[in-house]
Each structure stands twice: as C-alpha cells, then as structure tokens.
Nucleic acid binder design. Structure first.
Lengths: 335, 335
DNA sequence: TAAAAAAATTAACGCGCGTAAAAAATAAAT
DNA sequence: ATTTATTTTTTACGCGCGTTAATTTTTTTA
C-alpha cells in the first residue's frame, strides 16, 4: 500500500479510507485512485484489514452440513443477500460436528465479523460456547432456533407447515404415519414431531410414530434401511407416510421401489409418501415427491435484514425477534 | 501472546516456536506451556500468523461447485487427508463461475498456502490467471486436468471407465446412445464423449450422440427437460442410454418415469440407463442407477501425497506427474 | 476575496504475530 | 568440574494495514 501510495501520489491514510468506503473521499481523488488502480493491480490484503479494523464488513454464515444440498442452497441464497447489502460473506459448514461448529465460531471471531447468521446443529450444539459467542458478536439464528440466544430467529413455522400437509393427507386418503429418526440430527425434527401429533389430534386422528435407527447425516441411507425393515414387516397402521424431511423420504422411496411397492395417489398404489422441505432433489424422485416447501428466500431475507438493522443501528434489540414463515404445499406424484 | 508469555513465564519467541511446531521445544518447556494453556484458553490468531510466516501450513482446496454432492464428497475426503497430514485445509467453491475461481485463488494467495489442490472449472476457466497462480504456488490438479499447468494431476481414467461401461452395455443388450449436454459445464465431458466414440468404434458399433440444451450446473433439470424432448420424440436408435454423468441420469430417470417408460434390464423394460461417477444419490434413484464409480479415495490420496512430497522436498518436479485411476462398474437396477 | 468548512497530508503508533542476532541459561558429554 | 552443544531469553525489527492528531491544502460559503 505504501508503494501504491508513492506511485499514485495519494497518501496512505487516504487510500485506506478509499478502500474502506470509496465514497468517503472526494470524487476527484477517487478518480485519481481509480485511474492508478487501472495501471497496477493492487488489492489490499483482506487479512491485514481484518486484523486492524475494530469491526469489518464480514458477515459469517454457518450451516450444519454443507454437503446437504438443502443447506448448500439456503447458504447460497444467504450469501447473495449479504453481497447485495455490501457485506462480505464468510461461509462455513460444520460437517455435522459440534466441535467443528465451535471451531467455526472461533475462527469467525478472528475475522471480527460485523455479525453472523447461524444455523445451529441444534440438539448436539455446545450451548454454553455458542452463548459466549453470541455475547460478543451480534448473531441471528436461522433454520433452527436456540431459544434464549441471539438477537433474532428466522425460520419455518413447522406447526403450520406440518399442519398443512397433515390436513392434505387426511383429506385425500388415510391419515399419515410419521416417519422419522429416533434420535434425529436435524434440529427441527422434534418440532415437526410435535406438530404432527398436534395436527392429528386436532383432526381427531390417532398419531403414529415410526422411528428408525441411525446416527449422523446420511439421511437417505437411514431412510432407506429403516424403510426396508418397516415396509417388509407390513405392520403399518396406514398406507400413508409423512417423513420428517425430504432426504428420509428419498431413501424411503428407493426402498419402496425395490420392494415393489407402488407409490402414488392413483388406483393400484400401495403407498403414499410425503416429505418436508422441498429439497432440491425432491423434484426428481420417482414418483416426484409431494412435500411442503420452506420459503428459503423469505427466511434468508428476514435474517439478513434483521442483522443489517442491528449492525447499522449499532445496538442490539432488547427483545429477541422471532419470524416464522409459512410453508407451501408442493403437490407432486407421491401423495 | 505477550500476556500469555507473561503469565506462563515463557518468552514469546519460544511460544511462537511451540505454536508452529510443539516438538521443536524442549519437552520440559512444552509441558510448562501446555499446563499454562490448560488454565487460560489462549490460541494464536491464525490470520496474524499467515501474515508473517513466509509459508504457512495451509493447503487450499478449490472445487468448481460445492452444492454438487459429488464435489462436496470429494472435497470432504481431500480435507481429511490434508488434516491427517498435519496441514490446515482451506476449502473454497467456485459456484461454477470462472470469476469466482480466480477470486478464490486470489484469496488463497493472501493465506500464503504451502500448496493447493485445484479441481478447475475446465472449459470456462481463465487459463492465464490460473497459470499465474501456478507459477507462484505449487498446485496439484484433480478431477480435471489443465494440460501444461501445475505439478501433477490426479483423476479418473475416463477412457477406461467409459470403455468399461460401454463394454458392459453392449455385452448385455443394445449398444448405448451417449446422452450429454451440448456445451457441457463439466470439465470431463469432452473426454468422456471421445472415450464413448472410441469404445463404440472398437466394438464395431456406430456411436450416437444425443446432445441436450442447457447452461450452468443444474444438471438434473437439464437432463430432465432434455430427456422429455428426446423420449417423447421416440427417435432414439437404441433403447440404451449412457449419460455423461450421474446427475444428468437422475434427471433422465425422473423424466422416463413420468412419461411411463419402464427402466431396467428385465422383461417389459423399455429403457436401460447408465451413468458415470457413482454420485452419492445414484443409489437412491428408481431404479437404482447402474454407473461406474470414480475412486474418490485413490484420487484424493494421490493428489495429496504428491503435493506433500513437493512441499517437504521444497522443490517442484521437472516433469508433470499424471495419475489416472480406473473406475469400477457399479451394477444396479437401471441397466 | 476573505473566512469557514471540508478534505488530504504528515507523522506516529498499534494490531498480533514471525524472525533474526546476540547474550544468557541449561543440558549433555568428556 | 569443564567443555561443548542445545535451548531459551532479550532485544529489535518487520508484515500490511487501521487510526489518530496535528498540520497543510483545497473547496465552499458568505
């Protein structure tokens, strides 16, 4: 930067101001800088900047599992919002590991972010460590909430969305059984289970839970092997299965196909299967998966909006703001 | 670090040595440091370290598209190898954008990596910028090669793997038509096309290419819409389709299902479909996808091995080392 | 055109660490 | 108990930038 200052004839503090915010210098000097920039390709070192600024324009985005297309997609949407607002996204995935989640937060600290958007692992998260982090850095949760922590939450209204699909399934056929993991990794699983039970009771139906074994984030495989056992035992009280999420449903559909169960609403179908999330791949299952979509865009927009508001105003809200967005029924072939 | 030096009674340069390599200090001092570390949780600032060390133990990993489970998976394997070798992985995805790929390399420069493992976008990559980077940082390519660049390449032997599945398909039924994108994003697509043509000619069969429209990385959708057109026109010279990659096949299978084509090898099946890659989801298609696997682990191991060798020896090889690993036939239901 | 306001420059310090050289302390070898 | 080899400490500088305060220059306003 010293060299560039020498060759451009602009003092280093002015350059520093310019790179922080180009509009903060007189337009004539800005032009001088930009024409010098056209000759040599100088770019300030991001890490040296991070080290010195009290606060940067970095915004951390942390998701539980980047290899899950659902999180990859919502992270992508988040990133775009952050860029559009003039901030710099720093995307990190936790590989489903609580230790990695803490590691990510520790690494984020070093970047001195203006704020972070955090989709926590949930059940397995190390709450006290996350609480420490939230005390230092403005944090907005999305996808999954950790009740007392953070400035805000933006996510789906599981009660509404599960209610929606339960209503639909009951209206158009046998009431659904709920297909889920016994000890779910997914943080929304318990809410969905409760929402299912509530919806069934509201409709005067008896809820049934089918809980399959399995650990980790390989949901398709867990759904597949779980479904093999459940379907071949033929002990199901209903021909309709509502899965806690689409990835379980994808595994279930594969098992059903291999066992010769015909899935769908029409005549001659032995099974109806529905999911939740509108996972990027749910369009391509056979039959295509009936599910309820999460409003990715609204969730991302609200989370980003709230965080930007906090950053610009400079002080945190007294009360945690919670936004729950409704899901939409996506009717396809499977139910 | 100064504070920690004061409280632990160890001088800062010694601490600096310790954090760089714990075995480089006398074991008695190491114990003193570690017991002090147990009291206060001090950790050196990674970015300050990167700024000052001539070279770090960071290793960059760049893939074309992190939201593609195939790359997410191979990146995960790479990361693990890097960690096991005592280095620190820095994972970056290019979102399918050449500009992002360059941006990633520019950002990596700031971290002063000991080396980088690069899966390039291929066709659309900005070659001269990548060449600049390779001149400065030891780079090993994987998945896709850029002929004259980098110290080494580790990837699949497309000629062998496509040959394998073409052989299989010809042996067990009608010779396959090759289903691909007209202007593929995937860097291996051209090699696979050529391998298909070569394999067919070797077997005395006439090659047929079905090239569908579409840009970008939403391969399932491109396969789906392309297949709808192709299948309903019924102008196929064969009942067997070999897809350039599994994601196209996933879209194709969904289209076939919706149009009522029965896919598989048995009696009453109208279509056979095969893919390439053994994509994480290919087990869960209906029917499960017959494909040829890439040896993720071997590819990752070799790429990492070669890079570590270069880093440790301190000088680059005179000649580029190219490793091509054979694929394995994964026989499932679809062909 | 002089005074006031805004912007840029100079000079100097700080961030959190790496690193080099010389001096001092400790351990190993004789 | 010496000598020698190995570690550690002291001292000081550097990395690439942010930031502040005092000063000078430029622009705006009256």
């Amino acid at each position: 930067m010293d060299e560039f200052a020498a060759m451009s004839g602009i003092s280093r503090p002015t350059l520093s101001k310019y790179f922080n915010d180009p509009t903060s210098v007189r337009s004539s000097t800005r032009q001088r800088i930009e024409s010098a920039l056209a000759d040599v390709d100088y770019r300030p070192n991001m890490y040296a900047i991070n080290q010195n600024r009290r606060m940067t324009n970095n915004i951390g985005i942390v998701v539980p599992y980047l290899a899950d297309p659902f999180f990859a997609e919502i992270a992508r949407v988040m990133e775009q919002h952050v860029i559009d607002a003039g901030f710099r996204p720093v995307l990190l995935g936790s590989h489903g590991l609580p230790s990695q989640e803490i590691e990510n937060l520790d690494n984020l600290r070093l970047v001195k972010p203006a704020g972070v958007l955090l989709a926590p692992l949930g059940r397995t998260s190390e709450l006290d460590r996350i609480a420490d982090f939230c005390a230092d850095v403005p944090t907005v949760f999305f996808d999954a909430n950790i009740e007392p922590l953070g400035e805000a939450f933006s996510g789906s209204d599981n009660m509404q969305s599960i209610g929606l699909i339960v209503d639909y399934l009951c209206r158009t056929g046998e009431p659904p059984v709920f297909f889920e993991m016994k000890t779910p990794s997914n943080p929304n699983a318990y809410k969905r289970r409760n929402a299912y039970v509530a919806a069934m009771e509201r409709l005067g139906q008896e809820p049934h839970l089918v809980q399959v074994e399995g650990e980790g984030w390989d949901f398709e495989n867990i759904g597949f092997t779980g479904a093999q056992a459940v379907l071949s035992s033929r002990g199901l009280p209903s021909n309709t299965l509502l899965c806690s999420n689409d990835r379980l449903a994808i595994g279930l559909l594969a098992a059903a196909y291999q066992l010769g169960f015909r899935v769908g609403q029409g005549e001659g179908c032995a099974l109806r299967v529905a999911g939740h999330d509108d996972h990027p791949f749910s369009r391509y299952t056979c039959p295509a998966l009936t599910t309820v979509s999460q409003d990715y865009s609204a969730i991302a927009t609200r989370a980003a909006e709230v965080l930007f508001g906090i950053i610009e105003s400079g002080h945190r809200p007294d009360q945690k703001l919670e936004s729950h967005f409704e899901g939409r029924l996506i009717m396809r072939g499977s139910a």
